[in-house]
Amino acid sequence: MKISEPLSLEAATWLPEERERVSDLLAAGHLNEAETEQLGLTEVPVSDIPGPQLAVRAAERVLAAARFDPARIGLVAHAWLYHQGHDFWSPPHYVADRLGAHDALPIGVRQMSNGGVAALGVAVDRLLADPTVEAALVTTGDRFVPPGFNRWRADYGAVYGDAGTAALLRRHDPDGQEPEGQAPERSGPTLLLRSLTFATAAEYEAMYRGRDPFTEVPLQAGIPIDVRRPKKAYLEEHGGMGPFLKSAAEAVRATLLQSLAESGVEPGDPRIRCVALPRLGEHVLSITHALLDEILGVEILQLREGSGHLGAGDLLANLAHISASHGLAPGEFAVVIGGGGGFTWSCAVVEAA
């Protein structure tokens, strides 16, 4: 997705204060020593409020930092991975209403863990296609709690943390002029979204389906959700992980090179400061490390400690971290890799304004 005009992006993450710690679970017998070593982190955030409310809190944070009136938002794209608190309901409309974005079109986006990136793509398309849309807001919010979900044991290579994320996307004003009373107060530089690319291998949707039949009601296949069962069945039928790992490496390479080319940046450009990865386990990302070292040779950010995998929100959370904490100078770049079951992989290139 080549972005024909500069779009400014400001992102925020909202993490609940409560934590579940590996040491406590080990002491209580809920995890064993081998499992704790494989997890590779010490704690994750746990929320007592549902995903859409987490999204609202992250959005309030980004709107306050930008001093941006939510009434001026033309689109709210909300993404999620897991249950949003009601069975037959529209979470994006809730987010828009709670924020006061009453003129915005609320849209829900589902693309597993890549949902936040897909929602960002929807926002980019809307801004570039419709000059009457002044700003678009992207949010994610997920809460992974019993009895429906065991955040520690549901999946391979992922411990799921609760969080909301948000990104405000606007056409960039190079002169930095804001309407009166709207001067921003930011903890880091505004990021310019230079490119956003996707690659899909839809044949791997079966990895999350396995041998399970289609069901008629939620959780009919069993409670809590067991992501490992269908993955194991799929791998048994298809002879292991080899073909998938090959496809994943090809997709990451393709999206990365396309994003760099569309941003006008060569792979070895010294202005590229870092690349951030999804907040997944080390063994899941190991194939990506060699590829990124080969193409970029820059600092690799793995930010899962203290957060875990944030459902649909990893990429937006990584953008918020880069803006607030990574010290990009104007004209320097960062790369953020995403992906989600189905499978779709993604890559964003941002520049510090």
Rank of each mutant, 00 (worst) to 15 (best):
161 G>A: 06
226 D>Q: 14
175 D>P: 03
307 S>L: 10
287 I>E: 13
121 G>A: 13
287 I>F: 12
110 R>W: 07
63 L>M: 09
49 I>M: 11
25 L>C: 01
28 A>F: 01
87 D>S: 07
17 E>T: 09
273 R>W: 00
309 H>C: 05
126 R>V: 13
308 G>E: 04
85 G>S: 08
48 D>K: 15
178 E>V: 13
67 R>P: 03
238 H>C: 10
71 A>Y: 05
95 V>D: 01
86 H>S: 12
184 P>E: 09
133 V>S: 08
154 A>L: 14
183 A>N: 10
115 G>T: 02
66 A>F: 04
159 V>T: 11
299 E>F: 06
28 A>I: 06
238 H>W: 10
324 A>C: 11
196 L>R: 02
105 L>P: 00
97 D>I: 10
197 T>K: 10
331 G>S: 01
258 Q>I: 11
170 R>G: 09
228 R>E: 14
265 V>Y: 03
259 S>Y: 03
71 A>F: 02
193 L>V: 08
9 L>A: 06
28 A>P: 01
146 P>F: 11
278 P>T: 03
99 L>E: 09
46 V>G: 04
136 A>R: 06
294 E>N: 08
226 D>S: 15
206 A>L: 15
283 H>A: 14
110 R>P: 01
12 A>T: 02
134 E>A: 15
147 P>F: 04
348 A>L: 04
341 G>W: 09
107 I>P: 02
21 R>P: 03
98 R>L: 15
205 E>T: 15
219 L>F: 15
144 F>Y: 07
254 A>S: 13
7 L>A: 06
70 P>N: 02
302 Q>C: 14
5 E>L: 13
246 K>N: 15
211 R>Q: 14
203 E>A: 13
193 L>I: 02
312 A>I: 03
163 A>F: 01
322 I>S: 01
80 W>R: 02
76 V>S: 04
15 L>R: 00
215 T>Q: 11
112 M>E: 11
265 V>R: 07
255 T>R: 10
238 H>M: 11
81 L>E: 06
28 A>H: 05
265 V>G: 06
348 A>R: 04
135 A>H: 07
109 V>Q: 05
100 G>C: 05
307 S>H: 08
313 G>M: 07
144 F>P: 05
269 D>E: 05
82 Y>N: 12
91 P>W: 00
244 F>C: 07
141 G>Q: 04
216 E>H: 12
221 A>I: 09
125 D>Q: 12
159 V>W: 09
156 Y>K: 12
254 A>N: 09
140 T>Q: 09
288 T>C: 14
122 V>L: 14
218 P>H: 11
286 S>N: 10
267 P>W: 07
57 R>C: 08
137 L>R: 02
119 A>H: 05
252 V>Q: 13
222 G>C: 11
5 E>P: 01
263 S>K: 05
180 E>A: 10
214 F>M: 15
130 D>Q: 01
167 A>G: 03
285 L>G: 02
9 L>E: 02
287 I>P: 07
300 I>Y: 03
300 I>T: 13
212 D>F: 14
197 T>L: 11
118 A>W: 06
216 E>C: 12
51 G>I: 09
251 A>I: 13
242 G>H: 12
192 L>C: 02
26 L>Y: 03
28 A>S: 12
150 N>G: 14
172 H>Q: 10
25 L>E: 03
49 I>E: 13
254 A>G: 08
280 L>Q: 10
30 H>P: 01
180 E>N: 05
253 R>G: 10
305 E>Y: 01
155 D>Y: 10
247 S>Q: 15
77 A>N: 04
316 L>H: 08
